[in-house]
Design a protein around this nucleic acid. Structure first.
Lengths: 360, 360
DNA sequence: TTGTATGCGTTATCAA
DNA sequence: TTGATAACGCATACAA
């Protein structure tokens, strides 16, 4: 027997089946009755509520009773049903995380740290990927996860549509927004100002004597905010933005290479280029090398993200460091405090820092 | 007022609160009674069951009734409670994914593709990160997610401890294991044989006339399987493995650099190096350049993963391509078929391919 | 410290 | 096609 794969792009897939291996083929429609709390209670000779207490509030149970209950749990292999518990207690112990993608370190790092930190506190994280294409899709993802009755939400960015904002308000759910800032966040926020980042990079270049600037930026809201801050500061200083180019979001190394090709004829003899991510910067540096453009002599380059490639590649390149892991961990802390009701909503602004390396 | 952050490693965090912004501070302990199915039913003048049918099996409801119900849903902003629905129907419409990390493209790509594909089918994905440190921790993560009563599981690799294997069998849950293969998978499997990969790379090098081999490998089970396949094939051919070094898992570019330093004194004049990931390969190439070791003249290098840096960096380098997105998408397909009961368990072996570039 | 009664919001099942 | 009833498995609230 040969299994068929309905995946159009994967015509190259080889298929096979295990020979005589024992597996779950015999899955029945009538699964073994799973052990429930009443079974444990019966075996331990206590009320179901006592079993529940052993699991949730052990200090309110006497030691000998608890021991009997634990023995029964062990013997039966009891595993509490958190769906039922969640319905009853109205606390799902789940958090929904809505991020554009986890294919970029920009978001995989905070999501990883957030998931780890929430896991330690007994929460599971549901992942919803919103992409970069449409606000409607993000809104739909938020609505969809709300049907799971999460105990809290992690959202990316601080720009919400009015209907989603109203929905979140009415739900009274703790919400942490990351990777951006706003004067009027939905609830808690852990992020930084992307316009400030752009301005800081412009200042950094200007202070090193640059007068000609360029930018390669992805077409996502935050990359565009960095671009605006950069361009505005260049203009304030009366300097020249000689070239810029918008790239797809999220942008890849290849986009950076293509981007550099797109702007290279407009570069001044000594230009300072700000790239909206380290992947773009790496691509731009690679392509510059192939065209004999000297970095940093003719072209100084600053990336964003401080991914490992900026420091451990060769040549190393200057990049704006924002610690995604810290954002994820602090977001978890803040959300947990909101869930426990021990804290007021607020903004946590995380610092960014320009890591100066060989490319500038 | 200044909020304090309890995050020890993040002493550099600046804190502030929004001024006069409207947010969720007024979160009450008695949230607005959420709209439930009975409210919709009352407004539409039907039984709750009819509302449920409009949502879940619309073809079993007459058009006019369905229209009235939909109007009521719209008017009240009703959002079904999937926790309650899950308890009643015994189907949570959630899948748990247990992967070591999403910080590496090795796993973020399949998880992303899997999450997207399952989302289209109405499933949400719960993420559990198992790390690389201990089997016990992975087992604990699997047990923890089972308490959520997922409708299926995505697990990484094909090596399960006996107790987990028994637990999964007894649960009768569809399980898809990815990124490895086994003669005796738990249920469905979408992966490939890492020993074969190692052997194929050894063959590739040998056919190009190499007689001296080296390896840098991460200390995770699959990277070690690639190493075994590589070393075994080198031995079979009667050739020499002149140097190898184990690196932390997951390994970074920096690990690759340090790894190369560790083996460089033992390299033969013409050595073929297999690295367990493209990050390691990139680090090794970078470090080789700094030591004046010519790639590929003195040192030929092959990576694993075919991450973008292998093709779009400079110099480009040879790498083993395995399409993580395809693995994720096919894993979703297979799991959905198992959930629907329309397919038998089996293995899908995805192909790998050596992408030859400038480093060999 | 432990137990009892009740409800969480939905869907399976059967009857009309 | 629609409705009534009874779970689903657990935790809240109160009583003992």
């Amino acid at each position: 027997m040969v299994l068929r794969c309905h995946c159009p792009q994967s015509s190259v897939i080889l298929l096979s089946i295990p020979e005589g291996a024992s597996n779950l083929a015999e899955r029945s429609r009538d699964p073994v009755a799973p052990v429930k709390i009443t079974d444990v209670a019966a075996l331990a000779g206590v009320a179901p509520m006592t079993v529940s207490r052993v699991l949730n509030t052990p200090d309110r149970v006497s030691a000998p009773t608890a021991a009997r209950v634990r023995a029964a749990i062990e013997q039966l292999g009891y595993m509490p049903n958190l769906i039922a518990g969640g319905l009853s207690s109205r606390r799902s112990r789940m958090i929904a995380a809505v991020v554009p993608t986890i294919a970029s370190p920009m978001f995989s790092a905070p999501v990883q740290a957030f998931t780890d930190a929430m896991g330690l506190a007994g929460y599971h994280v549901m992942l919803a990927l919103s992409g970069y294409d449409s606000q409607d899709y993000e809104d739909a993802q938020i609505r969809a996860v709300l049907a799971r009755r999460p105990d809290g939400l992690l959202l990316t960015g601080a720009r919400r549509t009015p209907s989603i904002r109203k929905l979140l308000h009415d739900s009274h759910l703790p919400v942490v927004e990351i990777w951006d800032t706003s004067d009027d966040p939905t609830d808690v926020l852990v992020g930084f100002d992307h316009r400030e980042v752009g301005a800081a990079v412009a200042d950094f270049f200007a202070e090193r004597g640059h007068t000609n600037f360029a930018m390669l930026y992805a077409s996502d809201p935050r990359a565009m905010a960095r671009r605006e801050g950069f361009a505005a500061r260049v203009a304030e200083r009366g300097l020249a933005l000689v070239a810029e180019r918008e790239l797809p979001a999220p942008s890849s190394i290849g986009d950076g290479r293509r981007g550099l090709i797109g702007i290279k004829d407009r570069l001044a003899p000594r230009t300072a280029l700000f790239c909206s991510s380290d992947l773009v910067a790496h691509g731009a540096i690679t392509e510059a090398g192939l065209h004999g453009i000297d970095v940093p002599g003719q072209l100084a380059i600053c990336g964003f993200g401080d991914f490992e490639i900026s420091s451990n590649g060769h040549p190393s390149f200057t990049s704006v460091r924002v610690d995604g892991e810290v954002i994820g961990r602090v977001a978890a802390e803040q959300l947990l405090e909101r869930i426990r009701g021990t804290d007021q909503p607020g903004r946590v602004l995380v610092p960014f820092k320009i890591m100066v390396r060989e490319s500038t």
